[in-house]
């Protein structure tokens, strides 16, 4: 973040109320670690994630994959401090996540949840401006820094042509781009995305993938993304983490993780995997029906996880 925090002419002298001197001098590197995380919902019988650790390399794109109810969204919520762990800790930039002030954390880490709602009559631009919330004091109006960040975010998310449209009038894919622009405007070092491509048409899936690719190549933002589509994950990610029944079964580069054995074990499918220049290409063949009384994917997990998680 470029910090030219001059006193803004438009705050009309009321800026005395909150001086933003405490913004970190930004040696923050955007690292994210979860150690021995035990995560559960108040309504679930037992932990969904039971003592897993995850280290996200800063500046990289990490994809969490796994079948429905494997706990990947839960893990993401735990990392985002939306779900307090029963045990274990989350470190952001090497600091315990609880030691962050709420707004401070929101300036460091952004989260795009799976289903987001907004009033229909809000414009895309106003929605994106909400992403600047953690950067603004209680009485502060928008600064030039805010305007720049919003402009950048809208451009990066490729929704400049939607800027003045009302969110209610957009298609699902366009809405998702607007929401992505909003978290980008947060201007964070770490970005967590929960299934950003699910329910989108192919065009918008690729749009979203392209945004993440841009983030990977042109910025040092750390991205953790939950993806339903393992093919997309393989193409997009520097590192992949595969979960099943709340446990991490494999981690590494896409080439290491996406193997026929892993697909059989974690996703319970027979598939062919070809290594191509664009990463491993998967051709799913058939679901596996093991005869040895294989356990159903735990029902409690899928229940508590609210669907595709």
């Amino acid at each position: 973040m470029a910090q030219e925090q001059t006193t803004d002419p438009r705050t009309n002298g009321s800026s005395t109320a909150s001086t933003d001197t405490e913004r970190p001098g930004s040696e923050s590197d955007g690292s994210l670690d979860g150690e021995g995380l035990v995560l559960s919902y108040p309504s679930s019988d037992g932990p969904i994630i039971d003592g897993e650790s995850i280290t996200v390399t800063s500046g990289s794109v990490t994809a969490l994959v796994g079948p429905n109810g494997s706990g990947k969204s839960t893990l993401l919520k735990g990392l985002a401090d939306q779900l307090a762990p029963d045990a274990g800790s989350v470190l952001v930039d090497g600091r315990a996540i609880q030691s962050f002030d709420k707004k401070e954390l929101a300036r460091t880490m952004g989260l795009l949840s799976q289903e987001s709602t907004s009033p229909n009559s809000i414009t895309v631009e106003d929605l994106v401006y909400h992403g600047r919330y953690p950067h603004r004091g209680f009485f502060e109006s928008t600064t030039e820094e805010d305007e720049r960040a919003v402009g950048r975010a809208i451009e990066l998310a490729g929704c400049g042509h939607l800027r003045d449209r009302e969110v209610g009038s957009l298609s699902g894919g366009q809405k998702q781009l607007a929401w992505i622009a909003m978290v980008l405007a947060q201007d964070t070092d770490v970005l967590l995305l929960d299934e950003p491509t699910t329910f989108l048409d192919l065009h918008h899936q690729l749009e979203v993938m392209e945004i993440i690719e841009t983030l990977r190549t042109e910025s040092d933002i750390t991205v953790v993304v939950v993806l339903h589509d393992i093919q997309q994950a393989a193409r997009l990610a520097d590192e992949m983490v595969a979960l099943k029944q709340g446990a991490i079964r494999a981690r590494g580069t896409p080439e290491e993780v996406v193997t026929e054995e892993l697909l059989a074990e974690v996703f319970e499918i027979d598939a062919e995997v070809d290594l191509t220049p664009r990463g491993p290409r998967i051709e799913p063949l058939r679901p596996r029906h093991d005869d040895d009384g294989r356990e159903r994917p735990t029902e409690r997990v899928s229940q508590a996880d609210g669907g595709d998680g």
């Binding site: 929101a106 949840s113 709602t117 907004s118 809000i122 909400h130 919330y133």
Partner: peptide, 15 residues
Amino acid sequence: NMLLLGEKTASSLGM
């Protein structure tokens, strides 16, 4: 206005 975005979003934006 933030509350209209829903609890999850408002919270992840630092409210």
